[in-house]
Design a protein around this nucleic acid. Structure first.
Length: 707
DNA sequence: CCGATGGGGCTTTTT
DNA sequence: GCCCCATCGG
């Protein structure tokens, strides 16, 4: 009897899903049904009784992918997926450390530092140690520590050959002591500590190795060397690792991903089966041909050629713009045409190499009245106001959390100045106390203000919220701390109030979804919520709900697909990025990035470049990217220059200004309009004044009249 | 305690 | 060119 979920697999997918219990590498090309194979294999293992959910460990690259995997498994299987460990490396490490915090030497309520928190902790450390932060920049220290941890090294194991590295090594050591004292753990520490725990503790290791008979890894090409070692530790001698990846889509080497893990894996796990998923279900023929031809320029690939049963489809359109603004205008016109043909805007993606490029595009889209959504930038749990709120919650869970205390001891302002804070820090250092303990001892006469008020506030928050639900706790804290009132008082910060209210909703949603049994090792709901906030920073932007164009970097587009894709800024120096040319194998990573970009498209692909572009305040001249030459010419169709109307008219108050017109300005005198952009309230003109020179003026504000 | 001001930096980014 | 940060002055 074949389960229904096996019936729609192609032969290679089927072979992968039904592999016996042995380690295997699945080379899964873009759009080849990778997630489907992973989830179906888990379902098959359980359905056929070869494994119970408790035997399964599945690692993904993002929380989103983990969630998606669980949802899809649940849709295939009538059983509860509880007991299955599915998550990111960090999420799983956290789970292990929560379960065995004592053996790991951690307090039960340990908090997790995100990158921002870590940097703040390091800055504080440098100040306390009176280290010159010009000579030892906090960011460098942070990099040094994380780099060492990602190599599995403790401070004492780091080699230091010169004075500077000795200082860094000492700072690493001191940082670790500070973290331990405060009961906090950074991201790299989660991995390192869980690794050390299992290495050191033989019975524990034996327990988990006996349990996780089936280990599955998604996006294997993105794992780091240390993550690979971490997997080996869990796998032991006997467990089967099912690794799914695509060496052609490895685009995170710059932050430690090591695609060479795939070759190492074949050797270390004595892999006999490599299954290639090469049928692409996403893109039409021309698009796939372009991607294949491009990636063929890389050396040392594991070897894989995607094919499709679909038609060749439309040719790939190439547009050569003279400026970045003209490129943006081209995008606007094409998008309008697609929309008029009935394509939803959400099915169109605008991709670029770096975030700085979005500005020009956004400007053009805004002026054209096309709704769009930009991915990138700050995420929900990283926003200042949310961080403040989380700091109060962390103090409620654990007042010894110095990071959290410093963040809000005087926010909203309650008359605690820098001087006072320094005194508390000095007292804490002298007596070996936490800042909280030092603050409590400080006493004070006026309990309505200053340090005593703060101490009373935190104590009251802890006391009063004891029996409340999570959402009630959050809401009560937001009021009692004065955070809401603070942001309410200023009109420009209205969106911060919204975010704080959203935090209450997030808490309520988390509470509703929280299943104490699936996270049996979480000491309490509040800590679970704080962990969730640290490990999963949330969405980049609240969904607008409206049909909108999707703007993002190529990196952010990985894993997504769209009917139409625009890849902009295809210029030497930008894409491939100039910095990559100096890095080892940098150009090949750029090419893989281009490969990822191309394979996002289902039906329509547009490539564009500009002769000149404003970047970092300077006009840059860029030659067309070499990647354009690496795509066979017969797949490309140059698009004629859509000649722009030479003098766009900007109507203001019933009058129009046009390029070439003479004008008078109250302050700058007489001049000639040389350029204009935008419409309506957004309209600006560039005027060459006889005395004052070139100026951009917003028509709405500048008092301009025809001469 | 705030806003203004100036300097540095600037590829990609998840946890 | 623009954004973020630190610092300074009112």
């Amino acid at each position: 009897m074949t389960p229904a979920f096996l019936t729609h697999l192609n032969p290679e997918q089927f072979a992968a899903v039904t592999l016996p219990r042995e380690s295997a590498l699945i080379l899964a090309g873009a759009g080849s049904g990778k997630t489907r194979v992973l989830t179906t294999r888990i379902a098959w293992l359980i359905q056929t009784g070869q494994a119970s959910p408790a035997h399964v460990l599945a690692v993904t690259f993002t929380n989103k992918a983990a969630k998606e995997m669980l949802t899809r498994i649940a849709a295939m299987l009538p059983i509860n997926t509880r007991g299955m460990w599915v998550g990111t490396f960090h999420g799983l490490a956290n789970r292990l450390l929560r379960a065995h915090h004592r053996e790991a030497g951690l307090p039960q309520l340990f908090q997790i530092l995100d990158a921002q928190d870590q940097l703040a902790a390091i800055k504080r450390l440098l100040k306390a140690q009176q280290v010159d932060d010009e000579k030892y920049p906090p960011k460098q220290v942070q990099y040094f520590i994380n780099d060492a941890k990602e190599q599995g090294l403790r401070a004492t194991q780091v080699e230091a050959l010169d004075e500077a590295s000795r200082v860094y090594r000492e700072l690493y050591q001191a940082y670790e002591q500070q973290c331990q004292r405060e009961g906090v753990v950074d991201f790299a520490e989660l991995l390192l500590l869980s690794y050390e725990l299992l290495t050191r503790n033989e019975p524990l290791r034996a327990h988990y190795q006996a349990r996780f008979r089936y280990i599955l890894v998604d996006e294997f090409q993105d794992t780091s060397r240390f993550q690979y070692e971490w997997l080996r530790l869990f796998a032991g001698q006997d467990n089967a690792v099912f690794a799914v990846g695509d060496d052609d889509q490895s685009i995170y080497a710059f932050r430690g991903a090591h695609a060479g893990n795939m070759q190492d894996f074949l050797r270390d796990f004595r892999v006999r089966r490599i299954i290639k998923l090469e049928q692409n279900y996403r893109s039409q023929g021309n698009i796939l041909d372009a991607a294949n031809a491009l990636i063929a320029h890389n050396a040392g690939r594991l070897g894989k050629n995607l094919w499709t049963a679909q038609q060749p489809g439309a040719p790939i359109r190439v547009f050569a713009a003279s400026t970045d603004q003209e490129e943006a205008q081209f995008v606007v016109e094409q998008v309008r045409a697609l929309r008029d043909e009935g394509l939803p805007l959400a099915e169109i993606a605008l991709l670029y190499r770096s975030n700085a490029q979005s500005r020009v595009l956004e400007h053009a889209l805004f002026s054209a009245g096309l709704p769009y959504r930009v991915y990138g930038g700050l995420r929900f749990f990283e926003r200042q106001e949310v961080k403040h709120a989380l700091a109060y919650l962390r103090l409620m869970a654990n007042p010894e959390d110095d990071n959290a205390l410093l963040r809000v001891i005087n926010f909203p302002a309650r008359g605690i100045g820098a001087r006072t804070i320094e005194q508390i820090q000095a007292a804490a250092r002298m007596q070996g106390l936490s800042l909280w303990a030092a603050a409590c001892r400080r006493g004070g006469t006026d309990s309505a203000r200053g340090v005593p008020a703060f101490v009373l506030l935190i104590e009251a928050l802890r006391r009063e919220t004891a029996g409340m639900s999570l959402a009630e706790k959050v809401e009560h804290m937001l009021h009692a701390s004065g955070l809401l009132a603070h942001y309410h008082a200023r009109r420009s910060e209205a969106d911060r109030v919204e975010n704080l209210e959203e935090l209450i909703h997030a808490a309520a949603a988390f509470e509703a979804e929280f299943d104490g049994e699936s996270e049996p090792d979480m000491p309490d709901l509040l800590t679970a919520f704080l962990t969730h906030a640290a490990l999963e920073a949330g969405e980049h932007q609240a969904a607008a709900g409206q049909d909108a164009l999707q703007l993002m970097t190529v990196h952010a587009a990985k894993g997504l697909e769209f009917d139409a894709v625009f890849i902009t800024g295809l210029e030497e120096g930008l894409f491939p990025h100039e910095n990559s040319l100096f890095e080892h194998a940098g150009l090949e990573e750029e090419r893989r990035l281009m490969y990822v970009a191309i394979t996002r498209a289902r039906r329509l692909l547009y490539l564009s470049h500009a002769e000149t572009r404003m970047l970092h305040g300077q006009l840059r001249y860029g030659l067309p990217s070499r990647f354009l030459d690496e795509i066979p010419r017969h797949l490309l169709q140059p698009v004629g220059v859509a000649t722009l109307p030479p003098a766009p008219v900007a109507p203001v108050a019933g009058r129009g200004f046009r390029v070439g017109q003479s004008v008078v300005h109250a302050k700058f005198g007489v001049g000639v309009i040389v350029d204009c952009e935008g419409r309506g309230a957004d309209a600006r003109v560039q005027v060459n004044f006889r005395e004052a020179g070139l100026k951009w003026l917003a028509l709405e504000y500048a008092k301009l009249s025809p001469a």
